[in-house]
């Protein structure tokens, strides 16, 4: 397997001007403002939050106490983590191999099938919710992780992500590997996956996020108190006649944190050049 030599780190190609940095910094300020606002809000009393204060308050501890006292925060965090985590693993497994299959072994029939599969993401979820509920309820999967993940393990979107990305995967590598006597599945696991860390990282990020933020579906299948997810917990905090905005925004901070951690862990794979060279 010494045939292939994928280029390692290359020297800089473009220099960055002041204009580019200014543009980037403006974009960053715009996208950070809401987080800044939420952090401020989480430290303030409800009345001050709605009056639009931008000064940190001293109510953080009280807000935390109220949040813990009125909700099952850690249970919801764990549930969301479990739902989104299992979904990410299964989704990536099923869709990456399918996306690879659709591209590397493409022919007229597979291309047609793929176009047809794309239809599956084009109908509003509200339209298929009732039949899906019938199925999930039939199999006794209410209040379960299985019920949560089943409808979205395989999504045309994720298959397409892997399919599109496989297009620029050099075919010479595959041919060389075949000559070396590697099986097809072996090529996928030992050659394709290691060189595609960036796309897997992107997929982990978005699938985890979609699972974590999914609201409409868990809203109907999660019925018992201990199966509640984070978006449901947040919705519950603004359901009553009185909404405490300080507590609400603190719960929102808890809700974004895991997603940011995942993204932060994954973004280091977005580095220039196909990183995992083959030995």
């Amino acid at each position: 397997m010494s045939v292939i030599n994928i280029n390692k780190k290359t020297k800089s190609t473009q220099s960055l001007g002041v204009g580019t940095y200014t543009f980037l910094i403006v974009a960053v300020i715009l996208s950070v403002f809401p987080l800044f606002w939420m952090v401020i809000a989480a430290t303030n009393k409800s009345v001050d939050v709605i009056s639009g204060t931008l000064i940190p308050g001293s109510n953080l501890a009280t807000n935390y106490k109220n949040l813990i006292g009125s909700t099952n925060l850690w249970q919801a965090m764990w549930n969301s983590f479990k739902y989104a985590g299992i979904m990410t693993v299964l989704s990536l497994l099923v869709c990456s191999i399918a996306g690879y299959g659709f591209e590397i072994y493409h022919d007229k029939h597979k291309d047609r099938l793929f176009s047809f599969l794309l239809l599956a993401m084009m109908i509003p979820f509200a339209a298929v919710m009732i039949p899906l509920y019938q199925m999930v309820s039939e199999y006794g999967l209410l209040n379960s992780t299985a019920g949560f993940v089943l409808p979205t393990i395989s999504t045309p979107f994720l298959i397409m992500l892997f399919r599109q990305n496989s297009r620029s995967f050099p075919h010479e590598i595959i041919d060389a590997a075949r000559i070396d006597g590697l099986s097809e599945i072996g090529i996928f696991i030992r050659i394709y996956i290691p060189t595609q860390k960036a796309v897997f990282a992107a997929a982990v990020t978005v699938v985890f996020m979609n699972g974590w933020n999914n609201y409409l579906w868990p809203k109907i299948i999660m019925q018992s108190n201990d199966s509640i997810s984070m978006p449901m917990l947040i919705a519950g905090l603004q359901s009553g006649y009185v909404t405490d905005y300080g507590v609400l925004m603190l719960s929102v901070l808890f809700c974004i944190l895991p997603m940011l951690i995942i993204f932060f862990a994954m973004q280091r794979y977005f580095t220039q050049g196909i990183t995992g060279s083959i030995k």
Partner: peptide
């Protein structure tokens, strides 16, 4: 990167 990613991680409520 993480700062530009932030908006899409922000829950709808906020």
């Amino acid at each position: 990167r993480i700062l530009l990613f932030l908006p899409c991680a922000t829950p709808l409520v906020a």
